[in-house]
């Protein structure tokens, strides 16, 4: 599927997740965040950066990993990305939704 975000055409899956991280940029992230009712702050970017790095180094994302990340604690993570933090943050970060149950 294709979707036009901020004037740029990107490939997405049926849930709206970007399928090619190289098409991602910060403007797209801001638009995706808006769709989820989120206004991006420095802390949001810090988290996005962290999870993109995890993805690039092929380390699985989990809520336990967030706890140990040193970037953010779990409470803040839920506050910043309401409605399922890993689901929402990965959508904004342009990476696939985590497959794990944790």
């Amino acid at each position: 599927m294709e979707k036009v975000i901020n004037g740029k055409t990107v490939k997405v899956n049926e849930e709206g997740y970007l399928t090619d991280l190289s098409q991602w940029d910060k403007k797209i992230a801001v638009e995706l965040a808006k769709e989820k009712g989120i206004e991006m702050t420095d802390k949001h970017w810090e988290v996005i950066d962290y999870i993109q790095n995890k993805y690039k180094s092929e380390e699985p994302l989990s809520i336990r990993g967030i706890k140990k990340s040193g970037v953010i604690n779990i409470k803040e993570f839920y506050d910043l990305f309401p409605g399922g933090p890993l689901k929402v943050s990965t959508l904004i970060a342009g990476i696939p939704k985590p497959k794990s149950c944790m």
Binding site: P60, S62, I63, R64, G65, K67, N73, I74, K75, Y78, S100, M102
Partner: peptide
Amino acid sequence: LDIPPVGEFLEILSDSG
């Protein structure tokens, strides 16, 4: 599978609301 022991799991649950 990154599933924590019971004590740590309870902390995660509580922090998660």
